[in-house]
Design a protein around this nucleic acid. Structure first.
Lengths: 226, 226
DNA sequence: CCGATGGTTCGGCCGGCGACGAACCGTCGG
DNA sequence: CCGACGGTTCGTCGCCGGCCGAACCATCGG
């Protein structure tokens, strides 16, 4: 009967508002410094330091020290996925509050979900790829069709690099704002990288928002959406 | 910035040892009564009642009242999945403690994971099905092959019923004790049902353990494992 | 060598939450 | 109608954990 308490330990860790804020900030995928995190959590440095220490020794975050700086990032994709599903259930749990929170519309439109594209655009792209027969979806078990491989080559998406890594190529990730799927996995990451390279979009500093240029959005929709 | 706190709320809810114990107990998939849950959490009835009330209004559990009884179950598959991934990261977080906790070996061997088979046997079956070409796995995006459909028919597994539901047919679920995949989704559920029907195994009362008979285990391995 | 700045450690304060006992409400089985 | 039993409500207590200020250590840029 020791796994109950064990999950309680990490859940309790996430369960503090300050730490939760830190972790969500880290969902952006980039490593942040301790004072930056203290700022997003709206606490003093000592407090943040304490939080980070605890997050570290439960392996929820990983640290890299450079000079007098301390860069923290999420330990792992699994942690990111855990947080994402947490957002999923948290979202509909507070169904009422949802209405009263307009939230950044930009965040709903396009944001980075660890390393791939989420939000309205992400969902649109996913639907488009399935519609074009690039991806075959059975439930949430999805895979790249042979037609899809050709499609990627034509559009200059680096499949070799993407499939080299040991993580799954395609994964359906539930979008917490739209409650529908978007594309994750290394292919999802490659696609987002593609957007950056072409200058279609770039990250907004210290936020999960991905800002598309007008032309970039057009290009994305035209090529990948239905 | 309101999603941080929002996930914190549900995480904190899971973060209490008592409630965590309750939720893990409910991972068995069956609805349990309030006093039973008070017992597994090792608290008095008033305390448990309070916990359940809070779990209810955050929609982590659902309740069904029958006469003077109150039956609680997990609200949703998403919640079950959340808990499972929580176990995943919790498990390796306390890497040290793992060695010192012998834990029920029966639980490691075969247990129910919400509605499908997990543990050593679950993983073995999964590997076997992939090896036989019944399932095709690309990363963790898996699907039933045409060969696999024939295979199911031959073994009398009811595919129609399984694919009728709107949930995915196949899903790879990460096994927290073995750290490898086993089969989830409605096919996974159908397979476990199959084991019960044939008398190969039955649930152990008030535990997640699935007890296979000697003959049942043999039959399972012979038919589905490599 | 000296400020400035990032991060950490230490003590102490305080609020909140979980726990319980006792009393209460409802349903069940005679 | 009456005990028995499942569940809930209420009031109280005690502890744990988050928070901060102050002092401290380390690194950087001169």
């Amino acid at each position: 009967m020791k796994d109950g308490p064990s999950i309680a330990r990490v859940a309790a860790l996430i369960g503090d508002p300050g730490r939760a804020e830190i972790l969500t900030a880290l969902m952006g995928g980039q490593a942040l410094t301790a004072t930056e995190l203290a700022h997003v959590a709206d606490v003093t440095k000592p407090t943040a330091s304490g939080h980070l220490a605890r997050l570290l020794d439960t392996r929820l975050v990983a640290v890299e020290r450079q000079g007098r700086h301390r860069y923290d990032r999420l330990a792992d994709r699994d942690v990111a996925q855990l947080l994402e599903s947490l957002m999923g259930v948290a979202q509909r749990a507070g169904a009422v509050r949802l209405a009263t929170s307009p939230r950044e519309p930009a965040l709903r439109k396009a944001r980075v979900c660890y390393d791939h594209l989420a939000g309205d655009l992400g969902v649109m792209v996913y639907d488009g790829l399935v519609g074009r027969g690039v991806l075959s979806a059975k439930g949430n078990a999805i895979s790249l069709t042979t037609k899809g491989e050709r499609f990627c080559r034509e559009h200059g998406i680096d499949l070799e690099a993407a499939s080299a890594s040991r993580r799954p190529l395609c994964r359906a990730c539930l979008d917490w704002s739209v409650r529908r799927h978007h594309l994750a996995g290394s292919l999802g990451a490659a696609l987002l990288a593609h957007c950056y390279e072409r200058g279609w979009a770039k990250r907004v500093k210290s936020s999960r928002v991905v800002a598309f240029t007008a032309a970039g959005e057009l290009a994305l929709v035209e090529r990948f959406a239905p």
